[in-house]
Design a protein around this nucleic acid. Structure first.
Lengths: 251, 251
DNA sequence: CGTTTCGTTGAAGAGTGTCAAGGCCAGTGG
DNA sequence: CCACTGGCCTTGACACTCTTCAACGAAACG
């Protein structure tokens, strides 16, 4: 917005991890100054992705990981017969593209749901730096492991929860992630459509809509299109944990 | 079987990765001899886990990864309210325990479904070796990435497939993994119960049983309790890909 | 050989999906 | 500024898949 992107939205800007306000989310604590310098050499470019455009697609040659600076993205996988599944939503401070490491190419699509900016991390260089900076190497492993654990949670959700529980868990998860980034945990905008929420949660968009309406009717939320305000977080938590009515306080 | 396990099923046996017949599954190609020596120093012990016992549990302090030498395991996560979800089944040549890296402790239970033997890989030492052996570091990253991609596939399955499609995909996946290990791809034994299959696939055990019976009735399989013989793999593939009837050949 | 775990099958019911119609909102062009 | 358009969301009625509950049979284990 403030500076026009060059050509194919590749902005060759000087990166300064040391000044980045996402430091706590993105990097390990206790990096020494020389370590940070190696890192800044590694993360040399940024890239802007406009809403609707893709950061990478399944089949693209894998070259880099991406750290989200600002914006919002989704990742999707597609089956041979064309079914699409949203595997995750990504926001500032998160690392995307790790699916590509295993093969020579990406196995999912990652698309910006709003205008987005990422730090480009050339993977070959990351491998090198990981060899010489133990703290960073360990941090990288933790990030990948966290992704595995996150996906375990999604499997639990998809495999054993009802529509209401899935939605409640989803909203609480978003709430928590917004809060961690300094935004309100009770009031936020859903950057994705009902269909995308549904795909992620293994539901149809109509079901998502219905459940949101039901939550609103029960006083748990206020919903106004993409705008959501959580009125009773404990109520949502109760729903996630086995369907306790509202506050587990009586009835 | 051949040698009695010491005390707590901790067998201090000399490990020889260079002779291990799982080399192709477990290790990167092109390791130099000195690299392999470092590796064998790293993987110094084995551990036996009897059927029904757990390799580790959620909450256990994370110390090691494990490479399955022989046997069969399942991993499960549990929600706060007690719902259990099987997140994966593991067989020879696969690496388990990566969930533990992100925190200081494991986040899932991993239990042997038949008598199992694993190579213990102390994680701190792995971190060190990963620093000095680039090929191994890269391989390790690929293994973690592959796990992420695998879970994407499970999410696709859980989020967008019907019971028949899930089961067909599951059987084909098992078939392929058995084949990669030199076993028959058409005839094998299910080491897990119907309930465990159901948990993994987000179905109830009755549904699993019914669908298996239906497959058998349609001539796709022979099922005899845990013993399965695949008669028409293409038929199963057709089911996974959008429900083509048997062979896509007519009706 | 009894006990327990596991698997199969049926009938009824709940939870989502499907189909369809209509409303809301932002962006566009007159 | 207003009408128009298309995408997104909401809501209802109905269909269908899967679950639930229950009974029984088969295999595994001590």
């Amino acid at each position: 917005m403030n500076a026009p992107a060059t050509g194919f939205s590749l902005a060759h800007l000087k990166v300064a991890c040391s000044n980045c306000n996402l430091r706590e989310l993105c990097l390990p604590l206790g990096l020494t100054l020389p370590d940070i310098e190696k890192l800044e050499e590694l993360v040399s470019t940024r890239r802007k992705v406009k809403r609707g455009e893709s950061l990478f697609r399944a089949g693209d040659r894998f070259e880099s990981l991406y750290a989200v600076r600002l914006g919002f993205l989704k990742s999707t996988v597609m089956s041979t017969d064309g079914r699409e599944q949203v595997t995750g939503f990504h926001m500032a401070g998160e690392l995307v593209g790790m699916d590509g490491i295993s093969g020579e190419q990406h196995s999912c699509d990652t698309v910006a749901l709003e205008d987005t900016e990422v730090c480009v991390i050339p993977y070959e260089r990351l491998e090198d730096v990981a060899g010489s900076v133990p703290v960073l190497r360990n941090h990288f492993h933790k990030v990948m492991s966290r992704e595995i654990v996150r996906e375990h949670g999604v499997m639990l959700l998809l495999g054993s929860m009802h529509a209401e529980e899935r939605l409640a868990a989803f909203l609480l998860n978003l709430s928590q992630r917004f809060e961690a980034r300094g935004y309100s945990r009770t009031e936020f905008v859903l950057r994705m459509t009902r269909a995308e929420i549904g795909s992620f949660l293994g539901l149809k968009l109509e079901t998502v809509s219905r459940v949101l309406s039901r939550f609103a009717q029960e006083g748990l939320l206020e919903v106004n299109q993409k705008h959501v305000r959580i009125l009773n977080a404990d109520g949502l938590r109760a729903i996630v944990s086995g369907h306790g009515t509202s506050c587990e306080s009586g009835s």
